[in-house]
Design a protein around this nucleic acid. Sequence first.
RNA 1: GCCCGCUUGGCUCAGUGGUAGAGCACUCGCUUCACACGCGAGGGGUCACUAGUUCGAAUCUAGUAGCGGGCACCA
Length: 897
Amino acid sequence: MIDIPKTYDPKEAEQSHYARWEERGYFSPEINKDPNAPVFSIAIPPPNVTGSLHMGHALQHTMMDVLTRYKRMSGFRALWLPGMDHAGISTQLMVTRQLKKEGLTRHDLGREKFQERVWLWKQEYGGQILKQIRREGASVDWSRERFTMDESLSRAVREAFVRLYDEGLIYRGNRIVNWCPNDQTVLSDLEVLREPQKGKLYYLRYPFKNGSGSITVATTRPETMLGDTAVAVNPSDDRYSEMIGQTLVLPIMNREIPIVADDFVESEFGTGAVKVTPAHDAADYEMGLRHKLEQIVVIDQFARMTEAAGADFAGLDRSKARDLVVEKFAELGLLEKVVDYEFSISKCERCKTVIEPLTSTQWFCRMEPLRDLALEKLRAAGKPRFVPQVPYEKVYSDWLENLRDWTISRQLWWGHQIPAWYTGDGRIIVARSREEAQQKAGTDELTQDPDVLDTWFSSALWPFSTLGWPDKSEDLKTFYPTSVLITARDIIFLWVSRMVMTGLKFMGREPFADVYVTGTVLDKHGQRMSKTKGNGIDPLEVFEKYGVDATRLTLASVGSTDTRWSERQVESYRNFANKIWNAARFCLLNSDGVESVANPFGGDRSALPLHDRWILSRLNKTARDVNAQLQEYDFHGVVQTLYHFFWDDFCDWYIELSKATMTAADESPERSIARARLISVLEQSLRLLHPFMPYLTEELWLKLPVTHAQLLHPAYAGAEPTIMLASYPQCDDSLVDEIAEAEMSRLTILISCVRNIRSEINVKPGDRISILIGEATPSVRAVYEANRDQIERLARISNLSIKAKLDAPKASVRAVLSGTGEVAVPLQGLVDFDQERARLTLKKDNLQKEATKLNTQLGNSDFVARAPAEKVSELRARADEIALHTVTLDQMIEAIK
RNA sequence: GCCCGCUUGGCUCAGUGGUAGAGCACUCGCUUCACACGCGAGGGGUCACUAGUUCGAAUCUAGUAGCGGGCACCA
């Protein structure tokens, strides 16, 4: 006897299969030997080298793995390419901290040594997430693992930079940027968070030069007034129109500044007059350009006041400077008032430091021409296709339409150093290498720009740089464009749109056909999980507690809508995994003799027992639905379909109906065939489930007494058996059998009805009862006759009478079978009549309510005239049924009075 | 401020122009020889609110409220 535990222990299966799959090369597309195989490819959204797995990853990876495994089993040359990005700022921060413990700064080491330290750090601490991806069961091709700092990807970065520069899409310029005083680098708009902030609004008076009073401006940042070079008012604001062009004397600084007119100013806000600090505010910067105002830098890169702010302020921190400015205004009698004010403030996404807008020379990428490529592609070809289309396509196109230039330089040492060199005479040479630069420059007296590129610049190239671009590699030809990108919605701008733009620019094709945007897993209160809130749930702990497969099912069923995390949900899928385990256990414990059955469902199909024809029909319809749902990325739907097929159809009915034959004591051909059929259906079910539950299904599938090699997809012929490479079941239309399904429903309705009666009148589960069936059409009666044993066994009946007429004793419980037929259970005085009468009366009342509703509808001539005839007759049939049922109930009530 | 999404039984969520669904929780009964992470039976919802379109609306339209999200140079 085979020894199989009663409860599924996920750990064992999770430990034993992954390494084997990987070693045998099952994750690589090369495993597919069919030269004409269609191609399916996914580039993983590269996680950050400093990061570790969170629920969002687990969710996306589950879906990517489901699709990859599904396509692989369907014979596709499937590639899911893994890797990481180098996370410039975060990684540099990690190593800087490490150095600090040793009492060192990066400047002590110098650039080169520092970079060596970062690589050492990466080797030791980086890429935790790669191990975690293995734990998830993700079937990524590790032989193609990439890192954005790999030489081949770095080459792609340089190539892209040079090409964009040569076309004038990359330029160097002095503009206002977002500066993080803590990280000491510029940031792009997308790396800046806006957070609500409680602060003050300061009303400051700026006197006129001619001594005729003052104008009042309102500001949240008084310290910036030291760099003011104008005050602006709206040209149509009557209060100020006469003052336009007049000169003010900036207090403290005693600088003469003009009053200018600008449409940007909102008359309703504050005093309607705005101080203008072109060097320290993005809007003021624009205004400064419009009015040719001087940019005076009063705050430096450490957020301290500069010499230009005056001797009293130079070197002061910006917050100290604020206090001092306010103090001085008060002393001068120029502080009109200070009011509480709530506004939003820009913060560094990573370190939450308040951003200092300042003018600085940086590298920028012009977005308009790239943006136009993406918008044209969307409008002309609908590419990429967003799933769900609403609202993401619009989110994407709206963003593209309002796009501003992208700051791509970063003042870091970790990343791709900008391939630009400066000559002694001030020329800029952009080239793929120093050698090329020297050639172009005609000199070797070159200094390379010290800055590196935004990490996202390299990520934007990911779908093709990972496949070998700029070389015209085989991989690039085969796997680009990728099939689908699966990601969270907050990455649409940061990554998706940039990949589309670079893909169209350099490859001439969008990098992926579809973009599937996942929902978000929220905490139980509906809040986003975040490190700062500390409300995150560690997927690894969930794996540990409930198993990877159950967690994957839970995550897959999240689909594209936000869902609150519910441990109960995982628990129910854990139970489902156990159900599968036990169904298999039952099959395996009763598997003697199945080897002798070559083709369990072979021969004349119409001669098969009803339940066999029925399960084949259900199985094939399930395969049809599942394939369709997977094509449509309906992850939630497909999980439901598989769950209900396996549990309701296979376990609750098919196994139960098979028991009569398959658990017979004596060995017989019938017994072996029944067992082989059960195993065949189980085997196919496991294949359907495999993309979602890789470990459990592999564990069980390999145990089944079937000829595994024959079940492999032809593209993998000759491979060592694994369910990973078995054919994904497709619907065989010839096995869809509506008659069998209709007949089967007659049986299940009857059995459920009898069970219901037993329960209602409190018959002990073990007791066998007599029942009578009548009033059924001859064909239905034939179904009952043919399945007499099954009915008796599953409804626990000792005496089953099937006749044309129902001749039940008066004191019987009778029930109308939905569709056709009546069933009666003689009571033989075993029931409390009062109780029974009450029960029947309640039942009758409920039926009356439904009848009233139906009759109203059927009495409506408009309905009868306009509704589809099918619908009308459906309701008529139901009304007739209720009428019949009511009569029966009346008779029953009468009989036990 | 603008745009978008969500609002279905106690909880988490499906769903569709035509008699309200699942899982969990709950009630009752079961150690029935795969499974108590189970088996059988059952109770429970005017599908946020209002108005409209329709023979018919939870499903379409408009508005209202609550929640959530995105965008924005309001000092």
